[in-house]
């Protein structure tokens, strides 16, 4: 029998995925420019990681702008959706990269660099180290669920179109987007993984864990920001403040 179809929504989202090599090249160039500055201006390792996250956020905003439904929203609604989920999208992007990387003892960065977990344990503080380990646990759990690219793009879309967002002008469109993506994910998992009866629900439970982890990551970043360790005047800082103002 022919393989089950891939729902139209997922096919469209697959086409909208950014070119990873292009994103990587842009971020590497940006960080090298940073490192080319005079010694007194040079960022710390943590500062560079923040810069990397900031640049990854730019590509996330570009991806969102190209997204079905999202591009029909007014800029006010677009901002509310992104301010709500930016840290989840960063965490989910990191987790999916580790899924593809497939090594438990090291972390693959968006720049293509590989960092040993032992180096993170030695250099990062206990909070950051705990966050990285929690992310690794989530990677293992998603690996055991055999999450594929089709499900990844659909889950990412569901993170963007969260119904938690209040005061939207066009709530109806956001609800429609959510319902279409949920239906597509249910249809896809049931059709392609009939032996994993509960996969759809399991995947949504993982999204809740991504949300919880991203909240902790935001708290950590805000604490580092208050101690002056996060470079300012960038998208990362603006998003960090957005929920607090």
């Amino acid at each position: 029998s022919s393989p089950p179809d891939i729902p139209e929504v997922i096919l469209k989202l697959l086409q909208l995925e950014p070119d990873e090599a292009q994103v990587k090249g842009r971020i590497v160039a940006c960080l090298q420019q940073e490192q080319g500055k005079g010694r007194h201006e040079r960022l710390s390792t943590f500062g560079l990681m923040c810069k990397m996250a900031d640049q990854t956020l730019f590509s996330i905003v570009e991806w969102a702008r190209s997204c079905i439904f999202f591009k029909e929203l007014e800029v006010g609604d677009q901002m509310k959706l992104l301010q709500n989920c930016w840290s989840e999208l960063l965490v989910f992007d990191h987790i999916y990269r580790q899924l593809q990387h497939g090594k438990e003892q090291s972390v693959l960065l968006v720049t293509g660099q590989e960092v040993d977990m032992s180096a993170i344990a030695a250099q990062a503080g206990s909070i950051l180290n705990t966050l990285v380990l929690r992310a690794q646990e989530l990677v293992l759990h998603l690996h055991s669920l055999q999450v594929d690219r089709q499900e990844f793009v659909c889950l990412k879309f569901l993170i963007l179109f969260s119904l938690d967002v209040k005061y939207l002008e066009n709530h109806a469109l956001v609800r429609e987007a959510q319902e279409k993506a949920n239906a597509a994910l249910l249809e896809y998992t049931a059709g392609h993984y009939p032996h994993c009866a509960d996969k759809f629900r399991q995947l949504l439970l993982r999204l809740a864990e991504v949300r919880a982890l991203s909240m902790q990551a935001e708290e950590y970043l805000y604490h580092k920001h208050l101690s002056g360790e996060v470079p300012c005047n960038n998208l990362l800082i603006e998003m960090l403040h957005a929920k607090r103002t």
Binding site: F58, R65, M79, E238, A242
Partner: peptide, 18 residues
Amino acid sequence: EAEEPSLLKKLLLAPANA
């Protein structure tokens, strides 16, 4: 006090190929 121009808003309003 003039609000800081939002970088996110600028990005969202920029022309697609910017």
